[in-house]
């Protein structure tokens, strides 16, 4: 293609990136603002980070969110890998269409539907067997694992498609049963995808407001729930500081992940 042709296209890309990143950059910039008025610059300060770090409710919520995310991501990794492997390697089984649809649904259905459905399940379960009477940590983690599973499965299945099926056949040929073939050959080769899926499920859980709002009982407030109730009341420099920390953590994680995948590729 000649350089003059459609030359506005790269400019559109630059504009698109500006659109994506400018709001985040402003957010980060004003987290270092001295003033309580978030939109008026009054000099550099880190006081909001200090206040954030001594905000007990915020720290509790962050702690809950992180542990929920860790459990949800781990559950997702286990079942997502099983589901992705089932889809990718055992292509033709009965009810496969239903299986695929159940796997797809949590990814695409609106969160309000998912949240509502999870709560209905937990209350019905409580009625039937008396658990979970208090919907806390574990309930939120299970709810998050339902859609985390779907994302892990998609990533695992995608990676599986790039793996020669003869590798597992070779393992079977060399005396390994299916479980051993999976554990010794498929799993090590899928590991980058499982790790990426775990990270995605972790982030999704950490980010979720809607599902957690539906399922969590009184007394269990996740970080997004706290941020949401604070944000509804207006802008808060502490939220800017929190956002900056989250953005920084994500950027570092993402770069580490990208380097990792480059090295293993």
């Amino acid at each position: 293609m000649r350089p003059t042709a459609l030359s506005w296209v790269p400019a559109a890309l630059a504009a698109g990136f500006a659109f994506l990143y400018l709001p985040i950059l402003l957010l980060v910039l004003f987290s270092f603002n001295e003033s309580r008025l978030v939109t008026v610059w009054a000099g550099f300060s880190t006081r909001w980070y200090g206040e954030l770090m001594s905000n007990g409710r915020m720290l509790d919520a962050a702690g809950l969110s992180l542990s929920v995310a860790a459990v949800a991501a781990s559950l997702s990794a286990v079942f997502g890998t099983l589901a992705g492997y089932s889809m990718g390697r055992f292509g033709r089984f009965r009810l496969r269409t239903l299986f695929a649809l159940l796997l797809l649904s949590p990814m695409v259905l609106p969160e309000v539907i998912l949240g509502l459905s999870m709560l209905m399940t937990f209350t019905t379960l409580d009625r039937l067997v008396g658990w979970p009477a208090e919907r806390g940590f574990l309930v939120i983690a299970f709810a998050h694992a339902t859609y985390g599973t779907a994302f892990v499965a998609v990533i695992v299945e995608a990676r599986l498609r790039g793996l020669d099926p003869a590798l597992e056949e070779a393992a079977l040929d060399l005396g390994a049963g299916p479980v051993r073939a999976f554990a010794r050959v498929a799993l090590p080769l899928l590991l980058p995808a499982v790790v990426a899926g775990w990270l995605l499920a972790f982030t999704l859980s950490l980010d979720d407001l809607v599902v957690a709002s539906f399922v969590s009982g009184p007394g269990s407030t996740t970080l997004p729930m706290l941020v949401y109730s604070s944000v509804r009341l207006g802008l808060s420099p502490q939220i800017n500081a929190l956002a900056t920390i989250m953005v920084l953590a994500v950027v570092m994680l993402a770069f580490a992940g990208a380097r990792q995948s480059r090295n293993t590729a």
Binding site: P23, I24, D207, L209, V227, V231, M246
Partner: peptide, 14 residues
């Protein structure tokens, strides 16, 4: 990968 809520919040400021 950054919080959805935070990104919406960023636009409130704008």
């Amino acid at each position: 990968w950054t919080s959805f809520l935070i990104r919406v919040y960023a636009w409130m400021g704008l």
